[in-house]
Simulated scan of single mutants.
Amino acid sequence: MLKEDLKTVNEVSKLTGISVRTLHYYDEIGLLLPAELTESGYRLYDKGNLLKLEQILFLKEMGFELKQIKVILEDPHYDMQKALRKQREILRLKSERLHAIMALIDEKLEGDEYMNFKAFDMKEIERAQEEFKEEVEERWGQTDAYKESAHRTSRYKKEDWQNIMESMNDIFKALACHIGEDVSCKEVQDLIEAWRAHITKYFYECTPEILSGLGDMYVMDERFTNNINQYGEGLAQFMDDAIKYYCLNRL
């Protein structure tokens, strides 16, 4: 990725309206880690970071806590397209409500004394929000992986996240060195096993099903594809292929 495509924390703050302090906090709790750190320790964010920030804000709007959002977005089965469609529906309802209130104001300005409280009704919006929240909580809120990850990550400090990221970077960089080789080779398969162990150690038990889902996500979700391919062009696809071989032949 070109350096000019990266944004500083101040640029992200101005672009999104999120305070620098909040962005720092998201980094500290591992919710939104920057794509890179400069030699001076300044945070740099890429397109994938901004897409993730969009989802964070959406889920916050739905009433989820930050620790819940973190686990939801890390889940390989999180459907961003479905979430965006639901977001659009909620925004449509909010827009209709605002237009109704504006029309009511216009009527009052023209001297209409009829009292109409229907424009202030939030029932449809609340219904749509609650429907989405219940659906997400049913999918993630009661799973063992959710509970385990939430429990572990709630105790991590900034130093812990730095160690986790360094370990991840080492694995990804090592895998990038093997791009173009046969995914069945021992070195590649050992690294996939190390990646699975990394997830299990720091987040939740990475079952074969979860690992396979992660591989699919690496190539199907642009956010993850872009982030992983920073280590080497084509690494996301290479990892997906290597994970599939691992799940079929090593487990």
Rank of each mutant, 00 (worst) to 15 (best):
Y114I: 10
N249K: 13
K201Q: 13
E138M: 05
E130C: 10
K157V: 11
G41N: 15
R152S: 01
V188Y: 04
R21S: 13
S95D: 09
I90H: 00
K201C: 05
A176D: 01
K147E: 06
E28P: 00
I101P: 05
E28H: 08
I69L: 09
R88S: 09
Y25C: 02
R196I: 13
I179P: 02
E113F: 03
C206H: 06
D27W: 10
L211S: 08
N163V: 06
Y246W: 14
F224T: 07
E148N: 05
V183I: 14
Y218E: 03
K86N: 13
G48A: 15
D79A: 06
Q81F: 10
L73I: 04
A128Q: 00
A174D: 09
L44E: 05
K123L: 08
T200I: 05
L84M: 12
A150R: 11
F64N: 09
V9F: 00
K86S: 11
D46L: 02
Y146C: 02
Q230T: 09
K123P: 00
Q129L: 10
E205V: 11
H77Q: 05
A119E: 14
Q237T: 03
T225Q: 14
D5Q: 14
E74L: 06
Y78T: 11
R196G: 13
D240K: 15
D182L: 08
S19Q: 02
M115Y: 13
Y114A: 14
L31H: 10
I69N: 09
Y204R: 14
K70E: 10
R196Q: 15
C247T: 10
